[in-house]
């Protein structure tokens, strides 16, 4: 039965240890000398008056419901996987125009040494086989989750990267 999945981050649990990023590199045979990692972590701090707040982020393709990259690609390389609704791609016809990267609010799409687009595909084939995406499987604190958009809320909205970024985007629009 087809589902609508996305990968979400509970920002209150993330420690930016990078386990997700390395699991992704291993899964995708990433050559870090040639290609930017599909998933990146950020350890951030911000001074506010006397105090400092610390925050952590693990970021890759957000698998948006209305993914602007799909619309942005002139070669129709990017589509939604019918079984999982994850944003997948076949770059046979990619012309390396970077339109997808321009369209993506998160700057996610990267480009390999052949100039063609590469990004997180949500490990959709693993998901087809009942396995978790590599990053979700690896996350030691349970911060990264494969969430069912039609299921009960697994991450409190105030801690959900998905919720918070949608909020931010809607303010910009």
């Amino acid at each position: 039965m087809s589902k609508r999945y996305a990968i979400d981050l509970d920002v209150s649990k993330c420690v930016s240890c990078g386990a997700c990023a390395v699991a992704c590199m291993d899964q995708n045979d990433l050559n870090v000398k040639q290609t930017r990692p599909f998933r990146n972590v950020f350890d951030m701090e911000r001074q506010e008056g006397e105090g400092t707040t610390y925050s952590h982020l693990s970021l890759a393709c957000m698998h948006c419901v209305d993914a602007p990259c799909i619309v942005g690609c002139p070669s129709a390389c990017i589509q939604k996987d019918p079984e999982t609704n994850l944003t997948v791609f076949d770059t046979t016809n990619c012309i390396g125009c970077h339109s997808c990267a321009m369209a993506c609010p998160y700057g996610v799409p990267g480009f390999g040494p052949d100039g063609k687009m590469v990004k997180c595909d949500g490990c959709y084939v693993r998901v087809h086989h009942g396995l978790k995406p590599a990053c979700v499987k690896a996350c030691p604190t349970g911060a990264l989750r494969l969430i069912d958009l039609d299921g009960p809320e697994e991450i409190a909205p105030e801690n959900s990267l998905r919720h918070r970024s949608m909020e931010m985007l809607s303010k910009q629009v």
Partner: peptide
């Protein structure tokens, strides 16, 4: 989080962190 002693400094995935 991506190092222990010197043994991982030359593992490219971790060094990329």
């Amino acid at each position: 989080p991506h190092a222990i002693h010197s043994r991982l400094h030359k593992v490219e995935w971790l060094r990329a962190m």
